[in-house]
């Protein structure tokens, strides 16, 4: 499987109304500074390359608090092998979900929703459904997570907007059923707060 081109991925996300943070793909520091000024600091930097699958392990992800930090990070990241440019991205705050789509040989499109972020693989708290998954079914999936009370904000009084999160899950189900050439999708993290669900990082494979 191969990573789907950033442009194509972005268009698909827009087509299925999956909200992403404002992001600009740049190759020059000047462009990076301009974007950051526009979004407001802090901003994220993420390397992009067709053959790069895991950015974190190769220090290809960073957060810049100000102009000078951005400049330093930019030049360091451009040196990483396989890097074609850098994504400058606004920072959204909230709780992290992982939402995915894969194709099962027997059952077809399978949708996954779980607690996301860098701990996703470690805690492995996720629920699967065979598509189609409606918004209603997606709400049930979230309620089945061990981390459901955390998402409800039982402790920190910061509940997520479940309806918005469910919309993303249902949208991924639809995308899986309609876009046959896409074999696998991982949205991680999808940051959800009381207002919205924003897919910060996504990887589509074909």
């Amino acid at each position: 499987m191969q990573v789907v081109d950033f442009e194509v991925s972005n268009k698909l996300m827009a087509k299925y109304k999956i909200l992403t943070p404002r992001t600009v793909f740049v190759k020059l520091e000047k462009e990076a500074q301009k974007a950051a000024k526009n979004f407001g600091f802090p901003v994220f930097l993420k390397i992009y390359g067709k053959n790069i699958l895991h950015r974190t392990e190769i220090k290809g992800v960073g957060e810049a608090k100000d102009k000078s930090e951005l400049g330093k990070m930019f030049s360091e990241m451009m040196k990483i092998k396989g890097t074609e440019g850098i994504l400058i991205q606004e920072k959204v705050q909230g709780k992290e979900l992982i939402i995915g789509m894969k194709r099962d040989a027997q059952f077809g499109v399978v949708i996954m929703a779980g607690i996301g972020g860098i701990l996703a693989e470690l805690i492995s708290d996720f629920v699967l459904r065979v598509a189609p998954v409606s918004e209603n079914e997606a709400l049930k999936m979230l309620a089945e997570l061990k981390g459901y009370p955390y998402l409800q904000g039982k402790r920190d009084k910061n509940p997520i907007n479940f309806k918005e999160a469910a919309k993303v899950i249902a949208a991924l189900s639809e995308m899986g059923l309609k876009e046959a050439e896409i074999k696998e999708i991982t949205l991680n993290p999808v940051i959800v707060n009381e207002k919205k669900a924003v897919t910060v990082d996504f990887k589509l494979l074909k």
Binding site: D104, Q106, F107
Partner: peptide, 14 residues
Amino acid sequence: MAGDYSTYKAVFKQ
């Protein structure tokens, strides 16, 4: 061929 077990779990539930 056997599919992924977690998928079977989902299938049983659904």
